[in-house]
């Protein structure tokens, strides 16, 4: 098997994970596809080293997360500004009736505003602590907690659960 075939197999093996990670962070399919491509190209640049890693998937996931956060930071101004602009967004989330629970949750997650979805994804899917998330996003710890709390409340509403207070 030559290097090209090895890389193709590597992409096939990890493309769903990379795409899903990017989609959850960026919230848009076209942007997620671009980010996934960039992540795989980074892997391609040092494919020999990456394929020799014990956990290349973990490395790829970290690279994808970093690329997405850089993208968000570059293109979407400051998190605090978005918080102020998008307050009250949660009211418009889809209702739970008639749709599968997982689809509802997925849709509700992607429909969250950036400032709620990104810290929530970093906490639940990337297992980062509140402090790490605050550091990565350059916002206060209190803001991270508030945004995650509000994001969860919105997701619960989408699932038809009573929000925690």
């Amino acid at each position: 098997m030559n290097a090209t075939e090895g890389f193709e197999r590597f992409v096939r093996e990890h493309q769903d994970m990379v795409y899903t990670t990017a989609l959850r962070l960026l919230g848009q399919e076209s942007e997620a596809e671009d980010a996934a491509q960039d992540a795989f190209l980074k892997a391609f640049e040092r494919f020999e080293a990456v394929s020799a890693m014990e956990n290349p998937g973990g490395w790829l996931r970290t690279v994808t997360t970093n690329l997405c956060l850089n993208h968000l930071g570059r293109h979407r101004r400051r998190w605090s500004l978005f918080s102020e602009l998008e307050e009250g967004f949660e009211e418009g989330l889809p209702a739970a009736e008639g749709l599968s629970r997982q689809n509802d949750l997925e849709r509700a997650l992607l429909a969250l505003p950036d400032h709620q979805r990104v810290p929530l994804v970093l906490f639940h899917f990337e297992s980062l602590s509140y402090e790490d998330i605050a550091g990565r996003l350059g916002v206060s710890l209190g803001k991270v907690k508030t945004d995650i709390f509000r994001g969860r409340a919105a997701l619960r509403r989408a699932l038809g659960e009573a929000p925690d207070e």
Binding site: E8, V11, R12, Q15, D16, M17, V18, Y19, T20, L23, E29, E33, A36, Q37, F40, L41, F44, E106
Partner: peptide, 12 residues
């Protein structure tokens, strides 16, 4: 996990 679009692999 969401399935990656079919266009991703050829693009990459």
């Amino acid at each position: 996990l969401r399935r990656a679009p079919k266009t991703l692999l050829p693009r990459v």
